[in-house]
Amino acid sequence: MIDQLLDSSVLIGIAASGIRLATPYLYAAIGETFGQRSGVLNLGVEGIMLMGAFSGFWAVYHTGSLLAGVLIALLAGLLMGLGTAFINVTLKAEQGISGIGIYLFGLGLSDLLFQQSFDSVVTVNGFPRIHVPVLSRIPVLGEIFFQHNLLVYIAFGLVPVAWFVLNRTTLGLKIRAVGQNPQAADAMGISVARVRYFTVILGAMLAAIAGASLSIALLNVFQQNMTAGQGFIAVALVYFGSWRPFGVMAGALLFSTVNALQLWVRTKGIDIPAEYASMAPYLLTILALVLASQRVDQPAALTKPFERGE
């Protein structure tokens, strides 16, 4: 039973599939990490993903250009992020509830735009799989790591960049300061609002790419509510990773690999109730965090709007 899974081709398949599945989570969760590090919880990631998925798809369908798809998705993310930042930072709205509003807005608007532009589900030519020269020929590793589409590579490339920006640049320092102690940051002359606008918009643009990575790279279709709750999982993964890009990546990979594993388990005909297999990624993510049991405090100002002179 288990030995059926210990075949190298199976393990390669699971690992490669886990990497593909992790991609949208990674974009969305890294983006959300920036927002949360600066003190803004954006629960609306799911809605922004859907907008990104639709606009990217729409652009590729009409222009045939993948670059246009990415740019339009980024633009959609920028607009959604601007709106989100305006609501959460300028209007200081309760972040839990405004996030639900933004989610519903993206859910509804992406579907509405889709229905107005297309009559039914259609398809585009999205990002092809790239077999990285030389590297993709390495046995095992090549098959796992170097036969994906471009957006997968960018997602993983983003992780060290995000780490660097957060931990090794002045910008990162500002972001963390604003998330930890906005009053002090403000006193030091950092514009809390500007930093938060930046992180929220950046997060939204990455969320939009997360959506586009489904609609124009992994799946090449758009469908109403196609993200199916991934945006909420992405927010959860930020907590899994304790607001650190590499931790977030570990969470995304764990969740997705278990998900790939359970699909393979059933593909191999191993007799586990499908429902329990489907539960596995969710349960194991919690369990992993229990076992890791580390004490990392969340950014002190998370969900708290900044009021000068409080």
């Binding site: 599945l21 992994l218 199916a228």
Partner: peptide, 11 residues
């Protein structure tokens, strides 16, 4: 869940 359906097919 389109992504899950895709990966199921991929497996």
């Amino acid at each position: 869940d389109l992504a899950l359906a895709a990966e199921a097919a991929d497996a």
